[in-house]
Write a protein that binds this DNA or RNA. Structure first.
Length: 429
RNA sequence: GGAGUGAUGGCCGAGUAGGUCGAAGGCGCUCGCCUGCUAAGCGAGUAUACGGUCAAAAGCCGUAUCGAGGGUUCGAAUCCCUCUCACUCCGCCA
């Protein structure tokens, strides 16, 4: 039952190593000490209550024998009645201590991989590679939301009326473009990269969200259904990673490669005032997400491969991008190592995140109890999980509109997408 | 939403007047034997988690687990309560 993101036994054996590694994620050493103290208290209470339970079990057997032989067992029964009370009391203590240990383990962040560069913030993320030519315009490039409104393919005002701010409504060829991108990305990943297409429910339960690491810490980043233990998924990562939760896979089932299309819902708590216009930051956006479940020894190779698979989408769409490596100061709580892919957005004259590719190692697998067996006689091991956006569709739309805009306000459809647009090569007024 | 039935190990499936049941039996699987291929046959083995022991693994010891949680009891797969899920029928519905 004890799910944990970190291996408590490993922490017991090498507390200093964990303190040092977690210090890179700004976890004070005292937290590890407190965890170990709670763990010690839990284990000693557990040892005591198990000793009493063993006594009760053996005595109960003796009572059964005595009764069968018509002997008097009342002294044993009276004694066990007291032992039972003591067990009840100690069980309560064990429960409390175990909950305390779990609380620590569920809220501690993942350990960053040794290769992750040190850094304080996103400003310190090294650029790994840059692809494509940044377009030159003979005019002042306009923002995607201006282009889109003028072309009549996006209606933000009415979306606000219908729902509220940070929601949009695609219309006409805008809607078609969304649909075309989803289909194109899914086809690319299933046909070229060996993924299995998945279409999950957009609502997940609490166990699933604990499994991926969204709960208990990040509940306020999601929309919860009122009165129900359900949340709108913030990404298809949640259903896809939890697909094999509480299961033991055989080794020949690995690697698992799922490509899932879904809407993604985010409360965007704490982002007031940021990216308030356009398609960059919404409460709902669509995304094709890639999830990999792999052997531990392969996960870092797979991370490189996964990143290339996501980059392949931008290359096919002829959109300039760069790939950066996330430093310790910018690394997410769940992440062991992460690359971001950033697409060029001419209107803001900057690269903007359009995909994150992350290796969680066994962090999620522990929480989700997702294991595999190397062969029939070996013990189950935790798999490694990875995911990457391939890609966020709203931001891809924004990138196409801005990079492919023309002086007359029209927008070129990337060649690879034309078949998905029913042959339409250009969106005009 | 209404009525009913059910939930046991990888699968199927025994087991309710509480007692040595982690749980019969079968299937599957693994290893070995045997048969000049295959099939059949014979023998052995075949859950998970946690704690302890150990440098570690194996092994060994202990605890827990028969949908989940709680209760009764010296003792619960078996009795009681609550919940969840699945299936069937009715109603409703894209």
């Amino acid at each position: 039952m004890p799910y944990s993101m970190l291996d408590i036994r490993a922490i017991r054996q090498n507390p200093d190593e964990f303190k040092a590694k977690l210090a890179r994620k700004k976890v004070p050493a005292e937290v590890i000490d407190a965890l170990l103290a709670a763990d010690e208290a839990w284990r000693s209470a557990l040892a005591e209550v198990e000793r009493l339970k063993a006594l009760r079990n053996s005595t109960s057997e003796a009572i059964a024998v005595k009764k069968k032989n018509k002997e008097d067992a009342s002294a044993d029964i009276a004694r066990m009645r007291e032992v039972g009370e003591e067990i009840k009391r100690l069980d309560e203590m064990v429960r409390e201590q175990e909950a305390a240990v779990q609380e620590y383990l569920l809220t501690l962040p993942n350990v960053p991989h040794d290769s992750v560069p040190d850094g304080e913030s996103e400003a310190d993320n090294p650029v790994l590679r840059t692809w494509g030519e940044v377009p030159k315009f003979s005019f002042e490039p306009r923002a995607h939301f201006e282009i889109a409104e003028e072309l009549g393919i996006l209606d933000t005002e009415r979306a606000v009326k219908i729902t509220g701010s940070r929601f949009v409504l695609y219309k006409g060829l805008g809607s078609r473009l969304e649909r075309a991108l989803a289909a194109f990305m899914l086809d690319l990943h299933t046909d070229k990269h060996g993924y299995t297409e998945m279409f999950p429910a957009f609502i997940a339960n609490e166990d699933s969200l604990i499994g991926t690491g969204n709960l208990p810490k990040f509940g306020d980043e999601m929309f919860k259904l009122e009165g129900l233990p359900y949340y709108l998924i913030p990404t298809a990562e949640v259903p896809l990673t939890n697909y094999y939760r509480d299961e033991i896979l055989s080794v020949d089932q690995l690697p698992v490669k799922f490509a899932g299309y879904s809407s993604c819902f985010r409360s965007e708590a704490g982002s007031a005032g940021k990216d308030t216009r356009g398609l960059i930051r919404l409460h709902q956006f669509q995304k094709v997400e890639l999830v990999n479940l792999v052997l531990p020894e392969e996960s870092y190779n797979v991370l490189e491969q996964l990143t290339r698979e996501c980059e392949a989408v931008l290359q096919a769409l002829e959109l300039p991008y760069r790939t950066i490596e996330i430093c310790t100061g910018d690394l997410g709580s769940k992440d062991a190592k992460k690359y971001d892919i950033e697409v060029w957005l001419p209107a803001s004259n900057t690269y903007r995140e359009i995909s994150s590719c992350t290796n969680f190692e066994d962090f999620q697998a522990r929480r989700a109890n997702l294991r595999f067996r190397r062969d029939d006689s070996s013990r189950p091991e935790f798999a490694h999980t990875l995911n990457g956006s391939g890609l966020a569709i709203g931001r891809t739309v924004a990138a196409i509109l801005e990079n492919n805009q023309e002086a007359d306000g029209s927008v070129r459809i990337p060649k690879a997408l034309v078949p998905y647009m029913g042959g339409i090569e250009r969106i005009t007024k």
